[in-house]
């Protein structure tokens, strides 16, 4: 499904070039459940940005199914992200002024899905993550674990092939974190490819494959 060929990412700051990724080669199969581990500054987040079309490559090629993502025009690149990729962040990244339902609904509005269909999908997603009864609550009025479930519901509702999660349990206690991993297990079982960036070996062990990045290279 995903293929990175000699992918590099350099940052240019104040005349200094920093290589965050150095000719990475990676293949991820459809439906794979993968963890990316590494120390701070190793390039995990940069890899996630590249995979998630949040940033562009400096060198190499990125293939997603048959599409060479790295060669897409800006508009098609953005459209590609909308159609194929969802995100879950460590700090949940929810809109504080929108309810749980409205937060989960956002990707569907971005895709132009009709109101009735949106409602069905969102309710189903909230049901999957176990917070259907909280649909009218604001994020500030629910726990961290529930907020993260809302974020996952948003990713499920978007119905994309690839779900990327950056330290999804980082802001949660152990028990809650494991509860979240249960949800990710379900997401993966539904056929979605899930890639999780984490420091936590217990979280990584829940996946089927662990890759390590050190100094911008996969070891």
């Amino acid at each position: 499904m995903i293929k990175l060929v000699d992918v590099s990412k350099d940052y240019f700051t104040g005349g200094v070039t920093t290589s965050a990724l150095k000719k990475i080669n990676l293949t991820v199969e459809k439906g794979e459940y993968m963890a990316v581990m590494g120390p701070s500054g190793s390039g995990k987040s940069t890899l996630l940005n590249i995979l998630g079309c949040m940033d562009s490559l400096t060198g190499g090629q990125y293939f997603f199914d048959e599409t060479e993502v790295s060669a897409l025009s800006v508009n098609r690149f953005n459209k590609f992200r909308k159609e194929n990729i969802s995100f879950v962040f460590q700090n949940f990244a929810l809109m504080n002024h929108y309810t749980v339902f409205e937060n989960a609904e956002l990707p569907l509005i971005a895709k132009g899905v009709g109101k009735k269909q949106r409602k069905e999908k969102v309710l189903a997603a909230l049901e999957t993550v176990g917070i259907a009864d909280l649909e009218k609550k604001l994020p500030m009025n629910i726990s961290g674990g529930q907020q993260q479930r809302c974020a996952i519901a948003r990713a499920i509702a978007a119905d994309t092939e690839l779900v990327l999660a950056d330290e999804p349990t980082g802001a949660l206690d152990r028990a809650t974190g494991m509860g979240i991993m249960d949800v990710f297990d379900e997401v993966n079982k539904s056929g979605k490819t899930v890639i999780i960036v984490t420091h936590d070996i217990e979280v990584a062990k829940r996946t089927n494959r662990i890759i390590n990045i050190v100094d911008g290279q996969i070891v």
């Binding site: 949040m54 800006v74 508009n75 953005n78 459209k79 992200r81 909308k82 159609e83 995100f87 962040f89 990244a93 929810l94 809109m95 956002l106 990707p107 971005a110 895709k111 948003r154 978007a158």
Partner: peptide, 11 residues
């Protein structure tokens, strides 16, 4: 950023 993460394009 959240809008973009949810699929809203730059345009």
């Amino acid at each position: 950023g959240i809008y973009q993460a949810c699929g809203v394009t730059e345009n």
